[in-house]
Every structure is written in C-alpha cells, then in structure tokens.
C-alpha cells in the first residue's frame, strides 16, 4: 500500500466515524451532546495539527545547532592540508 493510499484509508475511516456520530446515520439515538461535540471536530483537529506543525518547525529552527567550532576546525585543517599537499608536490 502506498503512503497515499494509507492516508486516503485513514482519512475516510475518520470521516466515516465522524459522519456516523454527527448525523446519527445508524439511528443509535446518541445523546445530543455527542453530536454537538463531533460536528466541529474536523476543524479542531485541523487547527491543532496546524499549531503543532508550526510549533514543531519553529522550535526546531530555533534550536538548529550552529556549528561554529566545526567551521573553525575545518578552516584550520584546510590550511594544514594545503601546506602538506604543496610539500608533497601537488600543483593547485
């Protein structure tokens, strides 16, 4: 199963449950509060997922390591490498 099909499967499953509860399709005579809670649920889920995404990406951008040390180390090694290679007869 491709990821696309997995998603479609998941979304239709959730959608079906949502429709069952919100419109009481099976005549289960669910309490009114169930229907009232279920009805706006997709929007809530969408908004909370959006918030979660923004927060996660924001946090990860803010905590992205800046490797100053690695860059400095590399610059030093480049100098060392150039001297050594020149000594060994490399024409750059």
């Amino acid at each position: 199963m491709t990821k696309l099909l997995e998603w479609l499967f998941g979304v239709s499953l959730v959608g079906a449950v949502w429709a069952l509860v919100s419109f009481d399709l099976l005549d289960l005579s669910l309490p009114q509060t169930y229907r009232e809670v279920a009805w706006p649920m997709p929007l809530y889920l969408l908004v909370s997922f959006g918030c979660y995404s923004l927060a996660t990406v924001g946090y990860r951008v803010a905590t992205f390591n800046d490797c100053e040390e690695a860059a400095k180390e590399l610059q030093g090694q480049i100098k060392e490498a150039k001297e050594d290679l020149r000594r060994r007869g490399l024409k750059m």
Binding site: V57, V61, F64, N65, D66, C67, E68, A70, A71
Partner: peptide, 11 residues
C-alpha cells in the same frame, strides 16, 4: 547541525 545557513535556509 549546520554552519553557514541563514534563517530562511533553516526554515
């Protein structure tokens, strides 16, 4: 981590 990336690139 990375070195030499600005905010846009990180984002």
């Amino acid at each position: 981590g990375v070195y030499g990336w600005d905010l846009r690139r990180k984002l």
